[in-house]
Nucleic acid binder design. Structure first.
Length: 237
DNA sequence: GCGACAG
DNA sequence: ATCTTGTCGC
């Protein structure tokens, strides 16, 4: 049985340096919270595969125009993944490839949507929140399944499109279970950073189509990630 | 010892 | 996340 120690993860130093840099910058919230400026929305996802016992990952970021809903940019990065998946520490595993991919973007997204949680997290610091310190933009977390936080409570949302229930601990709202399709399991929305939950919900719902319960940017990033993985595996063999 | 566990 | 065929339904 292999034991992993978080404090020895190779990405730790880099992560904290970036957070320090980010905190010393001034973020203009009046600009970032003006939803009229949310024109370009990015979806981020990673797919994995094993090659001779070594784990590889391919990150895909796609940007859509929130008006036309068309993809206007795609960026990819692939590489070895050395950090294991540990519930609660997803960011340490996925951020290195994500950051590498963000650097390749020629268009700056106004909002990032991540596969996973933001504030809905035991330390209120899921991947969407963690990532905001690198991208310096509003971020939200979209999780396909519920990640249990101690003492958190919520009701199952009604079976209607747009129905939601807040996930709370006392008066604190961590996120919400949102029904993006009728007769389909809800998704779990939470703030990453620089955005409020109502706005996050509004944008999520506005980017849902009949193809998926996930918003378009995350959905397309997921498809792209698997398409590229197939190409990379074929190239190796 | 057993179950839970974002991706 | 990943391993995987058909199948039910719109």
């Amino acid at each position: 049985m292999k034991v992993h120690y978080i404090h020895q993860l190779p990405v730790k130093i880099e992560l904290f340096k970036s957070i320090q840099e980010s905190l010393s910058k001034k973020v203009d919230l009046t600009t970032t919270l003006n939803t009229n400026n949310f024109k370009y929305i990015a979806g981020v996802d990673i797919a994995y595969w094993l090659d001779e016992g070594i784990e590889w990952g391919i990150c895909s970021i796609i940007i859509i125009d929130s008006v036309t809903l068309k993809v206007i940019e795609k960026a990819f990065s692939s590489g070895k993944v050395t950090v294991p998946y540990i519930p609660g520490y997803l960011a340490f595993r996925e951020l290195p490839l994500i950051i590498e991919t963000v650097k390749k973007l020629t268009i700056a997204p106004d909002l990032y949507m991540f596969d996973g949680n933001g504030y809905l997290h035991p330390l209120r610091m899921g991947i969407a929140t963690h990532a905001s310190f690198f991208v310096h933009k509003p971020t939200i977390g979209i999780a396909k399944s519920y990640f249990k936080v101690n003492d958190a409570y919520f009701e199952i949302p009604k079976n209607e499109v747009g129905a939601f229930e807040n996930i709370t601990i006392g008066n604190e709202v961590l996120g919400r279970a949102l029904r993006s399709h009728k007769d389909v399991r809800p998704i779990f929305i939470s703030c990453g950073n620089f955005i409020d939950l109502d706005t996050a919900t509004e944008f999520t719902l506005s980017l849902i189509n009949k193809d998926s319960r996930l918003p378009i940017p995350v959905r397309i990033a997921d498809l792209e990630t698997k398409r590229i993985r197939k190409l990379l595996i074929a190239k190796t063999e």
